[in-house]
Amino acid sequence: MEIIRILISELPQFAKGTLVALEVLAGLLFLGLVLGLAIALAEIFGNTVVKFFATTVRKFLWAIPQLVLLFLVFYLPFDLNPVLAAIIALGLCSSAFQSQIFRGAILSVQSGQIEAAKAMGLSKPKIIFYIVIPQMIRLSIGPWTNEFSSELKDTSLAYVVGVVEIMRQAKYIIAYTFGNTAAVYLFVGVLYFILTRIGTYFFYRLEERLWVPGFEKRS
């Protein structure tokens, strides 16, 4: 069971790769969240010009494969380190998806809720802060968790621009232990699976905690 010994001795390398992957993940999700929210708000509340602009940006980001955008950003005429390039490119792609999540959630806040708040004399910023956002968060956690796990796996794409994340570490390990390719990749698969599970479990618990009767629950 040579392979198990190798995998155990390489655990620190996998841990390093995991940390880099999580760094990319956190960065891209944050960028995607901010941009996605901005696009969603622009598409719902913006005037015709803003709306058109936001929709166009979203559609183009949605249509470009992540790898293509990754290389485009990486080969921009100025120097970007690979991690930053990955965060920017994957974050831009994610924003297109996240904007759809937020748009759907905001639009499903029922108009009666806003009207009732208005009738009570609540100002517009307060309506957004106390009514729209709390309800929107609850409505978006479910789909957002899907986006999270999808992006967790897509951090592996950063491999192609040389980010030393999990896949790159696996490649190194395969290279200097001469072989064991299938076993190493299988182990990497288990690693990703566990990370995905931990992540989705965390968001599931968060959803449970925030859940109140009357909101639809994920199965």
């Binding site: 009666g112 809720q113 009732a116 009570m120 004399g121 109140v212």
Partner: peptide, 30 residues
């Protein structure tokens, strides 16, 4: 206008209670 609206309570046909708030929080909200 907001002060005026607060001075005129409004009860809707379809209630429109805030669905993310408990009964107590709904009534405390105003």
């Amino acid at each position: 206008l907001n002060t005026v609206r607060a001075d005129m309570g409004f009860v809707f046909q379809d209630f429109n209670l805030f669905i993310h708030l408990s009964v107590l929080d709904n009534v405390m909200f105003g």
